[in-house]
Design a protein around this nucleic acid. Structure first.
Ligand code: FES
Ligand code: FES
Lengths: 150, 150
DNA sequence: ATCTATTTGGACCAATCTACTCCTATTGGC
DNA sequence: GCCAATAGGAGTAGATTGGTCCAAATAGAT
């Protein structure tokens, strides 16, 4: 089904919540309460985002998470990579660890790379700010995706 | 990992094999032998492709499968849809059956649609002939993906 | 007409992955 | 020193996947 993991979906929601209060450190429990997502899972998502360098966590009392960059400077591709690992739509693209079982005899070795790069580009062109555009007006709507926003 | 199911991967390999002998009806076992894929799984893949109208199966002795269209007229998107169902990267896009659990309170309702359409377009622009281009010369290389084919 | 090869459609199972939870250690402020 | 919160890991129940198998339908050949 060409599914993106639900974690990535949550990731964007969580980032959106953080972006809505740019100067306020919010704890994982706080974010969970305001988004309606399972608290423990939100914690895990924020941990992964922190590892990826998209948010910075502060421990201790009055601690919490903060966006490490402005929403316009964060692409959806980065969120996907932080939560789901590198984009590799099949086992036959260069980045994949588990090589395709029939790559020796396969006629199409490497043919998926073009598709993979195209998808990667599509994800890179959309920023977090673009996804929040209907709510806050950060910047003009994306240029490449005019068909999607009628 | 933004994974496309392995079935789709196999689907393209199988289609490629059929395309290499355009006038010859090939049985599932035949295709399996020539691709090195598990025979029973190849049968399942061809069944799904037949249901999707991409290949036409002829039963009985000397039967087999035949491409129902020319390779240039078959997009990767069609193969993906036939084997993996409609492209819906998250549970929050319009096409998805299982609605996102927090869509009521979610701020980003519908924001994934733009990304989804962009990916769909990327898949539609690549044809089966394009994927076989390194082997046979069907037509000029894809225009939109020049970065992918240096 | 009968036989045989082959597709079709369905159900079926084992392995894997996912979403989610929980526990412990570490860190910083009060 | 104590409390609040992250960091990092392990662990589990459920869903999904890749793969197999078998009965039924169908078309060509004898
Ligand atoms: S299908 Fe994997 S290398 Fe061709
Ligand atoms: S995350 Fe599903 S509707 Fe917003």
């Amino acid at each position: 089904m060409l599914r993106l993991s639900k974690m990535t979906d949550y990731g964007v929601v969580v980032m959106g919540r953080l972006a809505s209060r740019p100067d306020e450190r919010q704890s994982a429990a706080d974010v969970a309460a305001n988004t309606g997502l399972p608290p423990a899972t939100v914690g895990q998502v924020l941990k992964a985002l922190a590892t990826g360098g998209l948010v910075s966590g502060t421990r201790g009392a009055q601690g919490g998470y903060l966006l490490s960059r402005r929403p316009e400077a964060i692409s959806v591709a980065e969120i996907v990579v932080a939560l789901d690992g590198p984009v590799a739509i099949t086992a036959c693209v260069e980045g994949a660890d588990d090589p395709c079982s029939v790559e020796a005899t396969c006629l199409l070795k490497g043919s998926w790379d073009a598709v993979n790069i195209a998808i990667e580009d599509a994800l890179k062109q959309v920023t977090l700010a673009d996804m929040l555009a209907p709510l806050f007006q950060f910047n003009p709507p994306p240029t490449e995706l005019r068909e999607a926003t009628p």
